[in-house]
Design a protein around this nucleic acid. Structure first.
Lengths: 192, 192
DNA sequence: CAGTCCATGTAAGTAGTTACATGATTGC
DNA sequence: GCAATCATGTAACTACTTACATGGACTG
């Protein structure tokens, strides 16, 4: 098991996300958590506990350095910087193309799959609730998209914004696709 | 931490999937793995090691029973049956509506998010490769869908088939949505 | 005679989750 | 007075992954 690490570098997603954010600018764990909640949540999320422990571990691995910055009236901040080794790791991962598909997990679909045992009425109510939740998500993404669109020209590095907007476009499409499926499935159950 | 189990029953997805399959008929771990690979993979997958260990644990929890069936010329089979307690657990989970959205994780989107650092050419190649993979998946789902459609009337319990087909419809929509996003993103990068 | 299918397991590790813990400041 | 924000951590656990392990029957 252990010798594999020598041959094939392990790319752990949370590591690469932290390296990605820190390649833009020095940040604290708190900063990264906040940014993730506003930009990557719809395709990758992390709890603060995982972020803090991973940053610590990556500092030991010489991918990052950190300094405590003393604040008055506010808690002190541990600011992380990416090292050359960290930059290399990020670039190595980016350069290596994905040759497989991500696997998708969806609890709702598991429930639907086994819903032959349920009352149609109950399934319908569940799908209607899900539709509400997805509609809320969709409108959040629409707001975010407007915001990104307005900042795309004023930003110093538009490439960053352009690529992050591609991911948001996927968020929008995903929600619309999901709502479409919910609508059609609701109709089909009603007509059963 | 421990007292929570007393108040709030834990619903672990793999448990519920195994209960779901065994509520149709008695099966072995191998059978369930094979069925999952043909029906639930696109929204939930499991390795055989997890299936075997979970079945064992659930037997201890009195949700299942098992008997070894001796075979000649072939390996012996451990056939599992669901108990009344197991049926109750499955039904309790089905009856409790989901009040949140599943969270979605996608490594490709993480890469795209940080692809401002890459050559457009490299990103394009990666997206084109992903397009190929998604197209392959799509055609597998289309075959499966044809198969389900032809069996929907001859099957003893069409409700089962109808609900499982709903999940396949999602698979089809998901792949089409993904390919659409890939096409548009590829075009936008080419025109950059 | 190499490879896949049948069939069932164990061992070891880790990524990620949930809860515990603290405490000053700002705002309704 | 209550809740949220800022800010950083530790402790404990578990769902899931990867690899190890076996061995007969069938197929091209």
């Amino acid at each position: 098991l252990t010798y594999i690490g020598l041959w094939c570098i392990l790319f752990i997603m949370i590591d690469l996300i932290l390296l990605g954010f820190l390649s833009y600018k020095p940040m604290t764990g708190y900063d990264i958590k906040r940014e993730m909640d506003h930009s990557t949540t719809h395709f990758w999320h992390a709890h603060h506990s995982q972020i803090y422990t991973t940053l610590r571990r990556m500092e030991k691995e010489a991918l990052l350095t950190s300094q405590m910055v003393m604040e008055e009236g506010q808690p002190n901040r541990r600011v992380y910087n990416i090292t050359d080794e960290g930059k290399k790791k990020l670039q190595d991962w980016l350069d290596k193309p994905l040759t497989e598909l991500d696997d998708y997990k969806c609890e709702l679909l598991v429930k639907v799959f086994f819903s032959g045992f349920r009352e149609d009425e109950d399934v319908l109510n569940e799908l209607i609730l899900q539709r509400k939740l997805h509609t809320q998500h969709l409108s959040v993404y629409q707001e975010l998209d407007k915001f990104l669109e307005s900042h795309i020209k004023t930003h110093a590095d538009p490439r960053m914004i352009i690529y992050s907007r591609f991911t948001l476009q996927m968020g929008l499409r995903y929600e619309r696709m999901f709502i479409g499926w919910l609508d059609d499935t609701i109709e089909e159950i009603k007509n059963m």
